[in-house]
Simulated assay, not measured.
Amino acid sequence: MTTGAQTPRYPARPRRSRLRTFLPPGLAAWLVLEVWLLTVIAGASSGFVVLLLLVAGFVLGSVVVKQAGRRAFRNLAETLQRQQSRAVPPAARPDSEGNGLMMLGGLLLMIPGPISDAAGLLLLLPPVQKAVSRTAQRTFERKLRQAAPGTLGDAFRQARMHHPDGKVVPGEVVRDEPGTATREQYPPLNR
């Protein structure tokens, strides 16, 4: 009988998320479908028509991305000017919302293929932008509530709750948990 060292037991692997499971085959299926639809369009008309569709989608997408980028930069500049002049920020303007979704729509238009073009065109419609924005916000807030302590969601929650003025105060954190008291020392910041 040998009395060697026992092999270490590793904890069970965490379950793979649905996104990591279904994203690669979904992307592969999407690419195959895009290529197949382009060949169907080329067979129904001609290769020149497909080339014109691809170029038109790229040009339209680049115009949309450029316009959304300019609008976002203009809104950023106005916000910075208001903060410097200490003016009261007005209510959110309708043209300041949806820049991200408009850029995403433009990028989808730039990707060659009829399915991505249709999705990009849909994202340019204001009712669709509002619906997608509401759904994304609800999903983000639900995931944030479900986040465990010590995760990225917990960091977002803490950043939102503490120090809205952005000031950092060097100091010491004392956590009083039942039965234990731990101290974590943070060095002062160099200024």
Rank of each mutant, 00 (worst) to 15 (best):
A92V: 13
G171F: 03
M1Y: 05
S96Q: 13
A136I: 00
G105D: 00
G171W: 03
S17R: 08
V169Y: 10
L107T: 01
L19I: 15
Y10N: 03
G113C: 05
V65Q: 07
L123C: 00
P149V: 02
P170R: 00
E97N: 07
V55K: 05
A155Q: 10
S85L: 12
F73L: 13
Q81M: 08
A181N: 09
A155F: 04
L27Y: 07
S96A: 11
F48A: 12
A119K: 01
Y186C: 02
T79V: 06
G153V: 03
A119N: 03
P164W: 07
R93F: 04
G69L: 13
T39K: 05
A118V: 04
S62I: 14
V63E: 07
L80C: 02
M103V: 02
E78H: 15
Q83E: 09
N190H: 12
R142Y: 00
R157V: 13
L108V: 05
Y186L: 11
G57C: 10
L76F: 11
A42Y: 08
R93P: 03
W30Y: 13
Q6D: 14
M110E: 04
Q67A: 15
A147S: 13
P114W: 03
E34M: 06
N190A: 13
L38Y: 01
P188L: 09
R20I: 14
P11I: 13
K66A: 15
R71K: 09
G105W: 01
F140E: 06
R183G: 04
S45K: 14
R175W: 08
S46Q: 04
D154W: 15
T39C: 14
S85E: 00
E184C: 01
H162D: 14
W36M: 11
A68M: 05
R82C: 00
Q137Y: 07
V88F: 09
V49L: 15
P170M: 04
Q129K: 05
V63A: 15
Q158T: 05
P164F: 07
K167I: 11
V32Q: 08
R16A: 15
E172Q: 10
F73R: 08
V173M: 13
M103C: 02
L33F: 04
R9F: 09
L38W: 06
G47I: 07
S17V: 06
N75A: 14
N75S: 11
V63G: 07
M110D: 03
R191E: 01
V50Y: 02
A5R: 10
S45V: 08
T2F: 08
A42K: 07
A159F: 11
A118F: 08
P11F: 10
Q83M: 13
G113D: 01
A28W: 14
R15I: 15
Q81H: 09
V64K: 00
Q185P: 00
D154G: 12
G69D: 10
V35Q: 14
P149A: 02
S62Q: 13
A77V: 09
A181T: 12
G43H: 04
M103F: 01
V40W: 12
A87E: 05
M110S: 08
R183Y: 02
G26L: 13
L27I: 15
T79N: 05
T2D: 03
L80F: 09
E172I: 12
T182A: 08
E177Y: 11
A148S: 10
E184N: 06
E177I: 15
P25A: 14
E184M: 05
M103R: 02
P164V: 04
L122Y: 00
V173D: 10
T7L: 15
